[in-house]
């Protein structure tokens, strides 16, 4: 039993972290592009901004469980199978990257317009402003955002247990629900809650120590 729980925990952790990584690889540039190409951004581009905005909005508006089932063919194509924790990474990433894009966009928009103007007045390029002004200046907010993203993906990964995903969610469904084992159910819930609290705490801590505006 302990073995089962432990491997479930590891699977969930793996699914979550790998998905977070891929969601950022795709979502980060999109979020930054949304800010840069916005009408009030540093390189306004109406077309690009509109297209990215629509993609993000559509994906954001599909409920995760539906998306999970809808992308099964794509998951099979990429992973060769649609069941198990590795396969679940595909729907998790598809669901999470638009969320990441919006979270990044929100953080980047917090950067004071004046600081960006000052950098422009020094002759900074758009790329320099993104990588050396926007990202470092909103780092505390980015860290907080990453904690929120991680917790969201953790929740999604548990949900994916219903349709064949692995990890703690699958154990909760298979043992706790179908076999009516309320003890297992409670343990799964407890582990998930502890993981959420852990990521939350981690995010809050690092966000605070990285922020030089206070203290």
């Amino acid at each position: 039993m302990l073995n089962l729980v432990f491997s479930g925990f590891l699977e969930t952790l793996f699914m979550t972290l790998v998905s977070v990584a891929f969601a950022y690889i795709i979502g980060l540039p999109i979020g930054l592009a949304l800010v840069v190409t916005a009408p009030e951004g540093i390189k306004p581009a109406r077309g690009v901004n509109a297209v990215l905005g629509v993609i993000v909005n559509i994906l954001r508006s599909v409920p995760f469980l539906i998306l999970l089932v809808a992308v099964v063919p794509l998951t099979r194509l990429i992973m060769g199978t649609a069941v198990g924790s590795a396969a679940t990474v595909v729907p998790l990433v598809i669901a999470a990257f638009p969320f990441v894009a919006r979270i990044i966009e929100a953080s980047a928009k917090e950067v004071d317009r004046g600081v960006i103007e000052a950098s422009l007045s020094m002759g900074a390029t758009t790329m320099q402003i993104v990588t050396r002004v926007i990202l470092p200046e909103c780092l505390p907010s980015l860290i907080n955002g990453a904690a929120i993203v991680t917790m969201t993906i953790l929740g999604y990964s548990a949900m994916s247990g219903i349709v064949g995903g692995g990890g703690l969610g699958a154990i909760a469904i298979n043992y706790g629900y179908y076999r009516n084992n309320s003890q297992i159910m409670l343990i799964m819930i407890a582990i998930l809650v502890i993981m959420v609290l852990f990521f939350q705490g981690l995010g809050t801590y690092f966000s605070r120590v990285s922020d030089k505006r206070i203290n």
């Binding site: 600081v115 103007e117 000052a118 422009l120 007045s121 002004v133 470092p136 200046e137 030089k212 505006r213």
Partner: peptide, 16 residues
């Protein structure tokens, strides 16, 4: 622009 410095009312320093 490197030859034209600028300062502002709000200072606009990089806070981090």
């Amino acid at each position: 622009r490197r030859d034209i410095g600028m300062i502002f009312q709000g200072f606009n320093l990089l806070m981090q």
